[in-house]
């Protein structure tokens, strides 16, 4: 049992430019929004989200809480998240295993942290504090990383599993992030997923990445969310589904946002893979 009430269907990250198309064409899946874009007092963002909420399950996905940071959580930001969750009663709230605020400066990226007993205790405390402040359980997402730390002595999968056990939160499994990190750091994505505590997973993310090279000419993948989901990521996703069955699965496309039909087609592809997995599991 994971702390999410999202339906086991596809979903898409909502972009304002798709508002009219979603109303016109209809969409059976759930919608996800970045919490921080809905922290204004009023205006079109809330008008659109309020309208869409009438017809869709909703996931609120925070990108600015800095749960993995060394400093204390921003209480004002927690209060804003609480207000937002109270207003929309989303089926799920999630955040990232990352940090973005240091000494009060907001760096606006999901930055990596070392995995040690010390950082584990801190992240657990931050997840506890967040869940208390929101009065609900949350999901925590595995990151895409470009560097790792010498001091890390806990594998990421174990780190996430331990957070989920101690804080009683769920996990958000970003399959693209797994593929990106595995490629960048030279580990097996399949081995990572084999070790991943899937029982805690309440939602899956699928997104596109960008391929570059590092200084040594080795592949360097970047979690850019500006392209279709790559084939190897679909393959990994299918292998996860074989173990979990259908599960809320989000298509993330944040840069070079395509037209609605392209995005909806990606969501349909996830639905088809879920249907296939359900058939095979029933057989």
């Amino acid at each position: 049992m994971t702390p999410t009430a999202l339906p086991a269907t596809s979903g898409v990250g909502f972009k304002p430019e798709h508002f009219a198309a979603i109303l016109e064409a209809g969409f059976d899946g759930f919608l996800e929004v970045h919490a921080e874009n809905y922290m204004g007092a009023g205006g079109p963002p809330h008008a659109m989200l309020g309208r869409l909420r009438e017809d869709h399950a909703l996931s609120i996905h925070g990108v600015g809480l800095s749960i993995g940071g060394a400093g204390p959580l921003d209480r004002d930001h927690l209060a804003r998240l609480r207000t937002l969750c109270d207003r929309y009663a989303p089926e799920s709230f999630s955040e990232h295993l990352a940090w973005s605020t240091h000494d009060g400066d907001f760096l606006n990226d999901l930055l990596p942290l070392p995995y040690t007993q010390e950082t584990l205790r801190r992240v657990v405390a931050h997840v506890d504090q967040t869940q208390d402040a929101l009065g609900r359980k949350m999901l925590l997402e595995n990151p895409a990383t470009y560097v790792t730390f010498a001091e890390s002595d806990v594998p990421e999968t174990e780190f996430l599993a331990e957070i989920a056990r101690r804080a009683g939160c769920g996990l958000l499994l970003d399959v693209n992030n797994v593929f990106v990190s595995a490629t960048n750091h030279g580990f097996s994505a399949d081995a990572y997923l084999a070790a991943f505590p899937l029982d805690f997973v309440g939602e899956i993310h699928l997104g596109g990445h960008d391929a570059q090279e590092d200084d040594a000419g080795a592949p360097l993948l970047i979690d850019a969310h500006g392209a279709p989901v790559a084939d190897p990521v679909w393959t990994l996703y299918e292998r996860v589904l074989a173990r979990t069955g259908p599960i809320a699965s989000l298509i993330e496309w944040d840069n070079d946002v395509p037209d609605w039909s392209t995005l909806a087609a990606e969501a349909k592809r996830a639905d088809a893979l879920m249907a296939g997995a359900a058939r095979r599991r029933a057989a």
Partner: peptide, 10 residues
């Protein structure tokens, strides 16, 4: 909307 969880253009 200005907050994203993705990297900038690659």
């Amino acid at each position: 909307g200005q907050n994203d969880c993705a990297a900038g253009p690659g």
